[in-house]
Design a protein around this nucleic acid. Structure first.
Lengths: 228, 228
DNA sequence: CTCCGGCATCTGGTATACCAGATACCGAAC
DNA sequence: GTTCGGTATCTGGTATACCAGATGCCGGAG
């Protein structure tokens, strides 16, 4: 039979205008430095709808969704404001993250396959003792991938979903936390220990290591990040 | 000076139509038995807007919010459907709940005052050995209050917020889980142990007890609740 | 110069009309 | 009787117009 593969247009933007506006706004907001003193924090419905070339209706629905997620705050007859998270809120988010990823590690001990756990090595081993090769920006990406892998290995999609939404907010202060060589080295060491615990199928240890690792980040932010 | 207290109308419904529609729909959906075979799971925008006496616009925004929370699913040109959670999803929710409340107990060991912890006794001690007096419906309420108290004692509002939204969904299957005398008794015993751990300011033990307690519920649902 | 009040304007909230895809019903063809 | 196709209808998506509260400018009174 003739294998005539039809190029179906799934790549093209056939989503609703609301969905497209939502993605565009979310991307714009999460990528801007909202903590800069001169950051533009106020949005205007009519202006935005004109920019996107859509009417206010779908745009409003997108903004309402962002409002619920806590990225913006819609105030009747006042305006729409990009939300600056307080330091306390960020710390609380990291704490919840610690609880979720800890549970994920616990679950992974019984849910993850040996292959899945072995694959974690690839995200850590490259950053062994060679501090020079450890480009910090690159490590930052590998670090995120490592943690998301653990969340994924739990086999509980809800954990991953909640953690993702939290990460969205914590990201905003990421630009303000400088990763030092020393902290990165300890981070790599922590990750190796975590993999060991997973390989040993020791849920209590895996949970504790992951939780303490994330809480170290919490303490670091509490001490050295200055927002508010 | 004359103490003329002005009765400000805060009780009256001065909220937006969207907010009122949202509350009304949320209440209606979470209180109905969506797992009944003959439950009406489809909604219609025009019909609802006529019932509420509002236009489709604010109603749609309320529905969009419920959609994001996972209570309904809006499908373009098909309809709006009340979502039945699968058993796997409910189990995942309870697992996340266990992680959150475990972390809450851990935090409470350092954040809660002695008075706050002492107040927990009131929610448990009444249901001592007197099984006859232990009215199961009444216990169910006290049980919920106890767990929400622990979430609150963590001092982390985010934990409480996420747990609340999870509870909204788990509630739907509550009607289908019969609380037996025996399980309730063991639950009370667990609660007493948890209070002890909090009083001893033992975060590891408090976390473990709370987590295991909630995971018992998870196992119970997995074994005895039949949905899907 | 300062303060106050009213009106122009801005801005999110709501109502309404229209659009297009999806569905269901019905009748014709076989 | 079955199947196919077309059309009426249903339903969520979008555009537009209007509403009312909030803000701020501006001029007059003191």
């Amino acid at each position: 039979m003739a294998v005539t593969s039809i190029k179906i247009d799934l790549i093209g933007e056939n989503q609703s205008l609301k969905a497209r506006a939502y993605e565009a706004l979310k991307s714009a907001i999460t990528n801007m430095n909202i903590y800069d003193a001169d950051a533009q924090l106020k949005l205007d419905e009519r202006d935005l709808s004109a920019r996107f070339g859509i009417s206010r209706t779908p745009l409003r629905e997108a903004l309402a969704q962002l409002d619920q997620e806590g990225l913006v705050k819609v105030v009747a007859r006042r305006g729409i404001f990009i939300v600056r998270k307080t330091k306390a809120e960020v710390l609380d988010m990291i704490t919840v993250w610690a609880a979720l990823e800890g549970m994920a590690a616990r679950l992974a001990c019984s849910a993850a396959s040996a292959d899945d756990i072995a694959a974690l090595h690839r995200l850590v081993d490259d950053y062994g003792q060679d501090e020079v090769a450890m480009r910090l920006g690159e490590y930052s990406d590998a670090n995120i991938t490592f943690h998301q892998a653990i969340l994924s290995l739990s086999g509980n999609p809800l954990i991953q979903g909640i953690a993702d939404s939290l990460f969205l907010h914590v990201r905003a202060i990421r630009n303000r936390t400088i990763i030092e060589q020393d902290r990165a080295k300890r981070s790599v060491a922590d990750h190796k220990e975590i993999i060991e615990a997973l390989e040993a199928r020791d849920p209590d240890r895996a949970e504790r290591l992951v939780r303490e690792h994330t809480m170290k980040l919490r303490d670091h932010v509490e001490r050295f990040v200055d927002i508010d």
